[in-house]
Design a protein around this nucleic acid. Structure first.
Lengths: 300, 300
DNA sequence: TTTATGTTTCAAATAATAAAAAACAGCATG
DNA sequence: CATGCTGTTTTTTATTATTTGAAACATAAA
């Protein structure tokens, strides 16, 4: 069979709700009007009206549409929207890859993923096609897909690319006008960093979240559709790896806090040169951390 | 009906070719072995063998597979691979968009594109899903797709992003070792530029190709899967716009040749600083050209 | 002349299906 | 008895067919 009639069901209930607001035995507006109200095509509206006539809610003849009685709750048709949700598929997919440390070269079965994520197959295919643009997956010659990341090369290229994007972002921040919201964000981040620095002995694992917030704030200054997509993926990957590599986590995080503060200092002093240097230092550290976390995983 | 049996047909011919190399009435290798040879699953091999038996090419019983006679050309089955080719869909699609100046906001019908490009619908869907990652198209709320580029914002963001990537590439070139192939390429490009500079009065429209070659050479130094994808799209777009904006084309191209030569000079002198400056100047010019070409198109 | 409805056409979403791949199990042969 | 091969079954993927929904067109009422 064919596509689901969810659209019809939702529209029907919506129309019923609208009828509830009308006085009894009122004339209903035109099909075009109703279609606009429900944000749906006239075809659907006509199906709704037909059903209302069947249910004896409506006397319909030509352009005479008289409401016979107020709709009851029992008149509604239930629309079971399938769980899982197709919205944050990207998040969930990367989460799965990173959390279970799915190795590079793993064949990805669309059918299996479709079951696990509760998403129709064709959506998964489109999704994978999108990821292949980022070089995360690729089509196999004998059909199907295969996971490419996380090799060492991948991590290096990802870090380098991130570096290019972020150094640019830092440069943009340095030349942002005083009333730009980024300055407020940076001031707040400075406080948060200082607070965490004081409590580093106990709360050091809080850093991962702070790191994400920090880089997010810097990147948000660059309004660019091309970078935006990448930032999502990049931040997710670094976020996870920060959380997992437990070797000397406390010392690492303490050092990173210092590096962040150095960047903020330089930016607030509008010293673009110093900010670049500080950012470079921090990104170099990040890259090393990412690579070493990969090594540990490989040994495990 | 279902998928094409191209895979079977190609494998069959391949097996026939292989049989040609065997002595007459030889025993054929195991199914697994043949499957490896043809790069195909055992299921296909068994279909091939079954057909060969039907054609009285083979006496097949259990694991006894005796070749009865050498295969002739007439035994092959022809495999008509549909024209059009799904390979350079990206090239053809962008070509279409740019050549016919398809305006931003145009609804894209998968069915129609599928017919025009001679590519199955589902492939087009995957393709569009990939492009949406670059912000070139997006899904419409009521279903279907819509073209986003070419607005002014798009051109600005594209130029800025290109600038970030290329400045990085220039920096990488400046620190490349002396035996890196890029130096030979640059030397050749210098000659080509000088030659065109001499013949600028007549051959100025040759510049577009040269420009593409130049940026390609610079970018190729950065080995990064993330940038590689973008470069393809970016270069195509700039390439076309260069070709179309006919206003003062000769003067513009002459100036660009000078800018290119300045970049090559600075690079060959290993002066990273000067190279950055020269590149910045050139990219600024490019951006202006792209924007003005858009304005002209809008007026037209 | 405008606006609404009746009718038709076309495209997009999704189920169904044939083809291919992979997994499984039993058997023969050294 | 263990290895490798074939017969069979199960999954999975690529592709078509079908159905719902959107939109274009035509016609009639106000």
């Amino acid at each position: 069979m064919a596509r689901s009639d969810t659209r019809f069901r939702e529209a029907y209930n919506q129309i019923l709700d609208y009828c509830g607001t009308l006085p009894p035995s009122a004339a209903m507006p035109s099909e075009t009007r109703l279609a606009e109200l429900a944000g749906v095509s006239r075809t659907i509206i006509r199906r709704c009206l037909a059903r209302m006539e069947e249910e004896e809610l409506l006397a319909w003849s030509g352009r005479e549409k008289l409401l016979l009685r107020a709709p009851r709750a029992s008149d509604r048709i239930d629309v079971q929207k399938q769980a899982g949700g197709t919205g944050d598929l990207e998040q969930r997919f990367l989460d799965w890859v990173l959390r279970f440390d799915v190795p590079a070269g793993t064949p990805l079965s669309v059918a299996e993923l479709s079951r696990n994520f509760g998403v129709p197959q064709h959506e998964l295919k489109e999704f994978l096609a999108g990821l292949s643009r980022f070089g995360l997956v690729s089509r196999r010659p004998q059909g199907g897909w295969m996971l490419l990341g996380f090799t060492r090369d991948f991590a290096i290229e990802l870090s380098d690319f991130r570096c290019v994007l972020e150094l640019n972002a830092v440069a943009r921040v340095a030349e942002a006008p005083v009333d730009h919201p980024v300055w407020a964000a940076l001031a707040a981040l400075r406080e948060a960093h200082l607070r965490l620095q004081r409590e580093i002995e106990t709360d050091f694992h809080e850093f991962s979240k702070l790191d994400e917030r920090f880089h997010q704030a810097i990147s948000s200054v660059v309004k660019n559709r091309f970078t935006a997509e990448f930032q999502k993926v990049i931040s997710l990957i670094f976020h996870y790896h920060y959380m997992w590599d437990k070797t000397e986590e406390k010392a690492r995080n303490a050092a990173a806090i210092g590096e962040h503060l150095a960047i903020i200092d330089a930016l607030e002093a509008r010293d673009a040169e110093a900010a670049q240097e500080a950012a470079k230092r921090h990104l170099r550290t990040s890259k090393t951390t990412l690579l070493s976390s990969l090594r540990h995983h490989e040994l495990a």
